[in-house]
Design a protein around this nucleic acid. Structure first.
Length: 302
DNA sequence: CGTCTTTGACCAGCGC
DNA sequence: GCGCTGGTCAAAGACG
């Protein structure tokens, strides 16, 4: 078996993450209702991370907002175009119970962003000249293969040894011209079975038809356009089997819907081709309703 | 032949 | 200033 049925996500760099709210969030994805059981089994989500700007800012960035000549990079979730002024953490967290946590997260995130900004500012610019930061998302996937198939084509452009880790870090860039999405892939030194994947930027083009896709690929969800909302989708799925994981009580409250957009996103290409697209879209929209306040949905439908 | 990986070199930021 | 580290470049080679 190439990939295990267990997927983990956590904070690899110590910045903002869901685990700040609910450490060791267990999550189980049961695809049995998606007919996936034989292929994917279930996945376990420990925690997820979003560092950089809030999720919704991602689609607001002027440079990313209107991909030229390409379909919206976020077909399923690009509707979320009216980001709240708060980080997505507060969007996700139940307003009252995690208020303080969210504030702390905001501050921490700011500091982290400043650090990252300085680090990532390759071009020599003055500090007053802020370069546009690409949103970055990281997650951990338990997999035997380093480079997970995610529906996009990547070109490896570098590999570096990682400090305090016997495993190297690989750098990939989206092969599509005019798309500067990058991703880093490295193995967790604590658990070599876990692959830490960090995506930076947003695709300015639709996902190719996964020319080399592994039919049993489970990574489709994360790299692509759907990336922006998948963290919530994972939680969403997680809720499905809450009772199997008592510690899940720590998870910020969300109005989880029904169904599994993760599961649908994780479909193989073949499955996607054979399945009615409307079902996935429908589920996504349902999830959006869970995530995005109604007043925002009004605007996003414009 | 086109695409992709490998790998050493290079550059920039940061801490001391 | 120097060394370390992360990130990127680009030539060379592998592969289908």
């Amino acid at each position: 078996m190439e990939r295990s049925g267990v997927m983990k996500m956590e904070d690899p760099v110590g910045s903002w993450s869901f685990s700040d709210h609910a450490p060791d969030i267990p999550a189980v994805f049961d695809f049995s209702d998606e007919g996936e059981k034989g292929t994917l089994g279930f996945m376990e989500l420990l925690s997820i991370q979003n560092y950089g700007p809030p999720l919704f800012d991602l689609v607001q960035l002027p440079s990313l907002e209107k991909p030229t000549g390409a379909a919206p990079a976020v077909p399923a979730s690009s509707d979320v175009v009216n980001p709240p002024a708060t980080p997505n953490s507060s969007s996700v967290s139940s307003a009252s119970s995690h208020e303080q946590g969210s504030k702390a997260v905001e501050e921490e995130e700011e500091d982290e962003e400043e650090k990252k900004t300085k680090k990532e500012l390759k071009p020599k610019k003055t500090t007053s000249q802020k370069r546009q930061r690409e949103p970055r998302f990281a997650f951990m996937t338990k997999s035997e293969v380093d480079h997970l198939e995610d529906g996009y084509r990547w070109r490896k452009y570098g590999q570096k040894a990682v400090k305090n880790s016997p495993f190297p870090r690989s750098y990939y860039r989206c092969t599509s011209a005019s798309c500067n999405v990058k991703k880093r892939v490295e193995r967790c030194f604590k658990d070599p079975a876990i692959v830490v994947t960090t995506y930076e930027g947003q695709h300015t083009h639709p996902s190719p038809i996964m020319p080399r896709a592994n039919p049993s690929s489970i990574a489709t969800t994360f790299a692509g356009p759907r990336l922006q909302t998948t963290p919530f989708q994972h939680l969403h799925l997680h809720h499905h089997q809450q009772q199997q994981h008592p510690s899940f009580n720590d998870v910020p409250l969300l109005n989880y819907g029904h169904g599994s957009s993760f599961g649908s996103a994780a479909r193989s290409v073949q499955e996607r081709r054979s399945c009615a697209p409307t079902s996935a879209l429908h589920r996504d929209h349902g999830l959006l309703q869970d995530i995005v306040p109604s007043h925002m949905r009004k605007e996003e439908e414009i």
